[in-house]
Design a protein around this nucleic acid. Structure first.
Ligand code: MN
Ligand code: MN
Ligand code: MN
Ligand code: MN
Lengths: 218, 218
DNA sequence: ATATATTTTTAGACTTGTCTAAAAATATTT
DNA sequence: AAATATTTTTAGACAAGTCTAAAAATATAT
């Protein structure tokens, strides 16, 4: 039995070290979870005790095979619920995260598998992030940051790196959504901003925004 | 903010005293929740402190207006989720309770209202129990225990009083479901068992089963 | 009306998860 | 290679929710 709090720590370690394989620092976890380093130390000991994490004092944490599957399962649930909320319950992509943060902890194998089927076994969540399968495996989607694209290139919006409310709402405002066709027209040497054509309108995307938007070449 | 544990207590009080209007005893709550009386006393003080319950030492608990709405909202969520699981995710009516017990605590007004709309504003859950509306009001459905029906009468199965797994699985076994047409043929004076015709087969229903099945006259 | 039984509350302890403040280990500078 | 800065851990405290055992209040029986 893995508690709600343990699940949140597993998820943080999973996200910080590539799928939990890399060791991550106590402070990094504390920052990600908005908690204190001392709390992290305590919890990490419990995770190690339960064979979910590898932990050596002063040397960071990584996930065991078991811990990695547990973490991936939480991520799977989070992303399936996010997609459910957008596709079936009329949520906007900037409204789903907090609710999914709760739903991801509901325990029922049947629930998650039936939800998966109900959504027709999706591969990505509403932010373009991959949904792990039952065994925790993800199929990496090929995606490049908009900032890396050289003009002139046609591409398609496939995801966001930063999925904060503010950024998602900005994208809504400029009419950018997953699947939107984008033409990269020009790049301003002065501030690295990018001029794109989106639904026939030319708009300017700041370097910071271009650094948080994933595209694939058309 | 109402905690998960508080919500469970509110629900118990709501169910035990008709919608929480009647005072219920510490022991009754403890039994319903499979906990100890001393734990109930502690929690009931907290509910009173938060103006969710009326509590006088040694004299039981009832809900305040605020507590009643909070409890009804949890019941609303529980029953909407149960219906979702049956209607959309292929759960059987005997499999939904434990999952709904978790889902009922997810906090999001939008979630529950959208779920309500997605299910087309249902009035009843998969066990024939009424679903409270946003304001906590329920529309009582007219229903009589099968044991109260005099032969010969045609009626329809509309709900269960006892929704334990065992009873629900028994009903599955005899092919009884919500909406099933039933003809009450005879009542055995010796053991109060009831002979009914269900999908053209005559079967015998024990007094104890007949006392847990709701019907309405056709 | 008193004795007995039952119910309810209190007192004190324990677990989980968190925090602050101080100590210990590791990293970085000079 | 010290000295200094940073990171991490430990020690001790606290809140929420639960439990056991004992005390207090209420209900029931004689
Ligand atoms: Mn999310
Ligand atoms: Mn239920
Ligand atoms: Mn519950
Ligand atoms: Mn039900």
């Amino acid at each position: 039995m893995v508690t709600l709090s343990e699940e949140n720590y597993l998820k943080a370690i999973y996200h910080l070290g590539k799928q939990g394989n890399n060791a991550v620092s106590t402070n990094a976890i504390a920052e990600q979870m908005e908690t204190k380093a001392s709390s992290v130390t305590d919890m990490v000991k419990k995770l190690a005790e339960k064979n979910l994490a590898n932990y050596v004092r002063y040397q960071g944490v990584s996930l065991t095979k078991q811990g990695r599957l547990a973490a991936a399962t939480v991520v799977r649930k989070h992303r399936l619920w996010e997609l459910f909320l957008v596709d079936k319950l009329n949520f906007n992509w900037d409204e789903v995260h907090d609710v999914a943060e709760q739903l991801e902890h509901v325990k029922s194998e049947k629930l998650i598998n039936e939800l998966d089927a109900f959504l027709e076994f999706p591969k990505e969540d509403p932010h373009g992030d991959p949904i792990p399968d039952k065994d925790g495996n993800i199929t990496k989607i090929e995606k490049i940051l908009l900032s890396q694209i050289e003009p002139v290139t046609s591409c398609i919006c496939v995801g966001v790196k930063n999925s904060s409310k503010a950024f998602l709402q900005y994208l809504d405002k400029i009419n950018m959504a997953l699947g939107s066709p984008i033409e990269v027209i020009d790049k301003e040497p002065f501030d690295q901003s990018v001029v794109i054509k989106l639904s026939d309108k030319k708009i300017n995307i700041s370097a910071i925004a271009a650094n948080n938007l994933y595209v694939k070449k058309a």
